[in-house]
Amino acid sequence: MEYAKNILETIGNTPLIKINKITEELPCLVLAKYETFNPGNSVKDRMALKMIEDAEADGRLKPGGTIIEGTSGNTGMGLALAAIVKGYKCIFVLADKQSKEKCDILKAVGAQVIVCPTAVVPKDPRSYYSVSKRLAEETPNSWYVNQYDNPSNAKAHYESTGPEIWKQTDGKITHFVVGVGTGGT
């Protein structure tokens, strides 16, 4: 029988899909990596799992710990999915510009959500950056993910997305276009 032992085993190995209509005038094949096939509907599932696995491996994240992160939602969802399987608690700090639906879905998967004002500079103690850092300092047995400066963020794509694309194109990829964001895209 073929089946995934848990939801985390369904992350990655997403298909490449030919773009037809918007590229019909181009003299080349254009493909999209369909990352919404990941369980959290985002490319961020890859890096969320990688950051957790690396933090577990080097002892920054301990059994029963709390994962703390400032997120706009997609990284939070990836972290929450892994936390459910691995037995961690989550506290996510979001800016108030995020939709109610993003907050609600994170709460629905067991995360505590704290909303901070958008209209403050990152160093302001009320910003979602500052609040998440402070919570990590104050919360026993917690790990602050810090996706912006976490090397495992980009490493996830070096180890999974890149090799997948290379294999799927038989090494014939000539151009790659992506929005970089935190490095986890």
Rank of each mutant, 00 (worst) to 15 (best):
K100E: 15
E56G: 02
A136T: 01
R134W: 15
D149P: 03
T139M: 11
E137N: 11
E69T: 08
G70S: 15
G65S: 07
T118K: 07
K123D: 15
D96G: 11
A108L: 11
G162A: 13
N38E: 05
E137Q: 15
N146F: 14
E159T: 01
P122R: 03
S127R: 05
M47A: 13
A95I: 04
S99K: 10
E159S: 01
L49C: 01
R134S: 14
M77G: 00
V43H: 09
K123Q: 15
K97Y: 06
E159P: 00
Y128Q: 06
G70N: 12
R126C: 09
S127W: 10
N153L: 10
I114R: 05
N38K: 00
K62M: 13
E138A: 12
T75V: 11
T161Q: 09
S160H: 08
Y144E: 04
P125H: 07
L81H: 04
V113W: 02
V131T: 04
K102I: 14
S130W: 06
K133D: 14
A95K: 05
K107Q: 14
I68M: 11
K86F: 11
Y88F: 14
F37C: 02
K97M: 11
F92N: 01
E159V: 03
F37V: 00
S127T: 02
S72Y: 06
V93Y: 06
E56P: 01
